[in-house]
């Protein structure tokens, strides 16, 4: 692999990584705003797949190859299912999602009171507050990065840990999945009319 060393020097330096990080993260932020503010639920589902793609790109930057691929695999299928369900439950022509109308007036046309306006900006307040809280927590800590590198073969490390130290949580996760599977089937199963029991016809 010596022939690639020169390119490797250029690509893996910190500036390129930073540029890639900002590119991907700005893409992810814009797409996630698109998810929560697109009028059409189905289109926002497709945008959500874009967000997850960007996030798995970030995982690749963080050298978590296995998780990036698992992310793509699980969410490409999972979110498509969400979209399909949304398709079944909404009729885009008859039911406009109006929650993103900027409603400056109340229903009868009178100007709204400051209290109602506060209710409108409530979600924004919640969002800003949560970001502010988490960001303050992040900045109040001085993070000491251990200068080591992640081993390129960390799939093996993950597998070993999952089957030795963390085998009990792993089993619990599988039980959880089974429970979720059965529960989902039970919930989503169409209710049949109670069977009418007729006695004495056969036999």
């Amino acid at each position: 692999m010596e022939q690639y060393m020169m390119l490797h020097d250029y690509v893996s330096n910190a500036a390129a990584e930073t540029a890639l990080f900002y590119l991907i993260s700005i893409f992810a932020i814009i797409m996630s705003v698109g998810v929560i503010s697109d009028r059409n639920v189905i289109r926002s589902g497709f945008i959500l797949i874009g967000v997850f793609g960007a996030i798995s790109g970030l995982f690749l930057l963080l050298q978590a190859q296995f998780l990036a691929l698992a992310q793509v695999m699980i969410y490409a299928v999972g979110i498509t299912l969400v979209v399909v369900i949304a398709l079944m439950l909404t009729n885009p022509r008859s039911e406009k999602d109006t929650s993103y109308e900027n409603e400056p007036v109340s229903k009868d046309g009178s100007p709204i009171s400051p209290f109602q306006r506060l209710r409108l900006i409530g979600p924004a307040f919640v969002g800003i507050l949560s970001f502010f809280t988490i960001y303050t927590a992040i900045r109040s800590e001085s993070w000491i990065a251990s200068g080591e590198q992640v081993s390129p073969d960390n799939v093996r490390v993950l597998g070993t840990a999952l089957t030795t130290t963390y085998s009990l949580p792993f089993e619990f996760a599988s039980v959880l999945l089974l429970a979720a599977l059965i529960g989902a089937i039970m919930l989503a199963k169409a209710e049949r009319p109670t069977p009418v029991i007729e006695i004495g016809i056969d036999e």
Binding site: Q65, F66, A70, V72, M73, A76, P152, V155
Partner: peptide, 13 residues
């Protein structure tokens, strides 16, 4: 290093 998993992931897109 994650060869076949990569192939499967991109095949699910």
């Amino acid at each position: 290093p994650t060869g076949i998993f990569f192939v499967l992931a991109s095949a699910s897109i």
